[in-house]
């Protein structure tokens, strides 16, 4: 369980004469194990900041984040991160990229080979294991990055606009694929996106954040049963729910634009 308690984050001024940036203010939320939580909000409202603090890359300026009751000390193998850019290691093959986390444990190859092959298969990357990552399409690179994150079986998967750089068709494929994967492995997912439709389609909850300094504007429970198919997004119920989320998000985006 992830418990975020009254979280603040202030970045010091970049240069002399500039003011400090308060990225997050008074953010509290509880995420249950195995839950899929999506976060939407205007650009610059602190979504990445929040995710980085859960990952342990940054520490809070105020408040705290508890993982199963323990305060976060830094990055750890229980939390995997997937970024908008796949950030694969270009000097490693696709196979070695996916196996990276297992190799760090100094296991002999015989101990993890079967697992890597299983992930290659699940990810539709069979036959590409010897390729250099930069010879893969964007969608394939992102699948390899997800495989690299999931192969060590982290309890928590942190995703920062993971499909934001993909074309619409590939993004659809990846969403379906992520849902299947989640249903299978049941990690806790914190998923940041700009796309309300994506958030509603994937999440158990959709949290809308305000313009900077980011607070929680609304925390929606998504009412649609699982497993969800893509066709769900065509139903009137889906559209109505999406409209409700947008009615909260729109004013925040506009006030963020006025701010900028």
């Amino acid at each position: 369980m992830i418990v975020v308690e009254n979280l603040y984050k202030t970045y010091p001024p970049q240069k002399r004469g500039m003011v400090a940036t308060t990225a997050l203010q008074q953010v509290s939320m509880t995420i249950r194990d195995g839950e899929f939580v999506c976060i939407v909000g205007p650009s610059g409202c602190g979504k990445t900041t929040l995710l980085h603090m859960v990952a342990g890359f940054e520490s809070p300026s105020g408040g705290r984040i508890l993982l199963d009751g323990q305060e976060i000390q830094g990055p750890g193998a229980d939390r995997a991160v997937v970024f908008q850019q796949a950030a694969l290691y270009p000097w490693l093959s696709v196979y070695d990229n996916i196996a990276f986390g297992l190799k760090l444990k100094n296991l002999p190859r015989s101990q993890y080979d079967a697992k890597v092959r299983q992930f290659l298969k699940i990810m539709g990357l069979e036959g590409f294991e010897r390729h250099a990552p930069y010879h893969l399409s964007g969608g394939m690179q992102q699948r390899a990055a997800i495989a690299r994150a999931l192969i060590t079986q982290p309890k928590i998967l942190l995703m920062d606009e993971p499909f934001g750089a993909l074309d619409a068709q590939t993004r659809n494929d990846m969403q379906r694929f992520l849902l299947e994967l989640w249903q299978e492995l049941r990690p806790t997912v914190l998923f940041i996106t700009h796309d309300v439709e994506e958030a509603v389609l994937l999440g158990d909850r959709v949290i809308v954040m305000t313009a900077r300094p980011g607070r929680i504007a609304r925390d929606f429970e998504v009412p649609f049963p699982r497993p969800r198919a893509w066709e769900l997004s065509l139903t009137p119920e889906f559209v109505a729910f999406k409209r409700e989320v947008l009615s909260v998000l729109r004013p925040e985006v506009e006030s963020a634009q006025r701010l900028a």
Binding site: P75, A80, A87, F100, G101, L104, R148, T152
Partner: peptide, 24 residues
């Protein structure tokens, strides 16, 4: 920065980060 963060999330020790990420 993400190259380093990926390794940290996978539980790399500082030496491993140096040897397998920073150096290459």
């Amino acid at each position: 920065r993400q190259r380093l963060q990926v390794a940290q999330c996978l539980g790399a020790t500082p030496y491993q980060v140096f040897r397998y990420v920073i150096l290459p």
